[in-house]
Amino acid sequence: MISAWARALVGAGVATLLMALSTSTLSANASPVLLTRLGSVQEVPIDLEARASPACAEYVVIATRGTFEAQGPTPALSGMTNYTLGNITGGIAYQTVYPAGDWTHQLGADDIVRRIEQGLTDCPAQKYVLLGYSQGATATAIALYNYTDINSAGYKAIAAVVVVGNPAKRANRISNVDQVGGSWTNGTNGVYIKLVPTIPDVWYSTKTLDVCWADDLVCNGLNFFSVINLMINHLLYKVASVQNLGAAHIIKQLKIALA
């Protein structure tokens, strides 16, 4: 969720920084990015565009992009999405349809819920993985309020949730990790904690992973270093360490749900 004031803070130096990082990051359009194990990235030939989209799938990865990102996949979630599709058969990906302008998270949540509700009716055995970056994390959190009854079909159908750069991250939750899976950012709240909905309590569980990069102003809140680096750390989630974390979590939870 990068608002107008924040965009003004992100200078031309960001592009230079991201170019420098490109050799250690996963491509935004990652055609075939697979992570064979944590900390190791390997490219393999998977033609995702040629993959058929059946009426009912084993699972659907619903990915919700951040503010001002164009409709389509976001680099912050693409690697973990492609890994999942390439390693657990029967899945399809869906990119949440919403404007992704300032404060449009409710529209994103509405589309997520529509996709799940349609699936619960038409494909009751289908499972879901919800991914959200920045404002997309807020949209995902709002959608989850529709599925807080652990005995409901909707709750049981959602196998895994991964959010990165969550503006309303809550401190000291079981789901919190930093960019390498540690606890550095566990004790901090997101900068919009009092302005946008947080993830429902019931979803802070083994199903959910909430990844916050150290000193990312958006999810780690205001401190000296987050102010100094402006919004730079909020743009780093496409790196392999984060994509590995997300992918490992998704795979583990999907295997449980599909067993």
Rank of each mutant, 00 (worst) to 15 (best):
residue 5 W to L: 13
residue 6 A to I: 09
residue 13 G to F: 03
residue 14 V to Y: 04
residue 15 A to L: 13
residue 15 A to V: 14
residue 25 T to R: 04
residue 25 T to N: 09
residue 30 A to N: 10
residue 33 V to G: 06
residue 34 L to T: 12
residue 35 L to W: 00
residue 37 R to W: 05
residue 37 R to A: 14
residue 40 S to Q: 14
residue 47 D to G: 07
residue 49 E to A: 14
residue 49 E to Q: 13
residue 52 A to Y: 09
residue 54 P to W: 10
residue 58 E to P: 00
residue 60 V to N: 04
residue 66 G to T: 03
residue 68 F to T: 03
residue 69 E to M: 07
residue 72 G to E: 07
residue 76 A to Y: 00
residue 82 N to Y: 09
residue 83 Y to C: 01
residue 87 N to Y: 03
residue 89 T to N: 14
residue 93 A to T: 15
residue 94 Y to R: 05
residue 100 A to F: 01
residue 101 G to Y: 00
residue 102 D to M: 08
residue 104 T to E: 01
residue 112 I to N: 02
residue 121 T to R: 14
residue 129 V to M: 06
residue 137 A to F: 08
residue 139 A to K: 00
residue 140 T to E: 05
residue 146 N to G: 07
residue 150 I to Y: 09
residue 151 N to E: 05
residue 152 S to A: 09
residue 166 N to I: 10
residue 175 S to P: 08
residue 176 N to H: 10
residue 180 V to E: 07
residue 181 G to A: 08
residue 186 N to A: 15
residue 187 G to K: 10
residue 190 G to A: 11
residue 202 V to K: 04
residue 206 T to G: 09
residue 207 K to L: 07
residue 210 D to Y: 00
residue 214 A to G: 10
residue 216 D to Y: 03
residue 218 V to N: 00
residue 222 L to F: 12
residue 225 F to Y: 08
residue 229 N to E: 10
residue 233 N to A: 08
residue 237 Y to V: 00
residue 242 V to E: 01
residue 250 I to F: 01
residue 251 I to T: 11
residue 252 K to Q: 09
residue 252 K to T: 08
residue 253 Q to Y: 04
